[in-house]
Amino acid sequence: MNPTSLTKTSHGRDDHWLSVTRPTAMTRFFRTFLPWQFVRFIVINFKMMRIIALSHRPPR
């Protein structure tokens, strides 16, 4: 298997478990915390509209 495949070790854990970044409980909580997600909905929409505006080029 190639180097980035998870494989089990003798103690039952994935051998590079500790090398992978994982979210904290707080991060996971905010991902579905409604008041915060309403704010993020607006912010992400704004960011996407900005990309759309940047991507539609005027006539050359």
Binding site: R31, T32, Q37, F38, R40, I44, K47
Partner: peptide
């Protein structure tokens, strides 16, 4: 302008 975020807002 390069950005990424995981959350419920994305699903909406």
């Amino acid at each position: 302008h390069t950005f990424g975020e995981i959350g419920l807002a994305g699903h909406w």
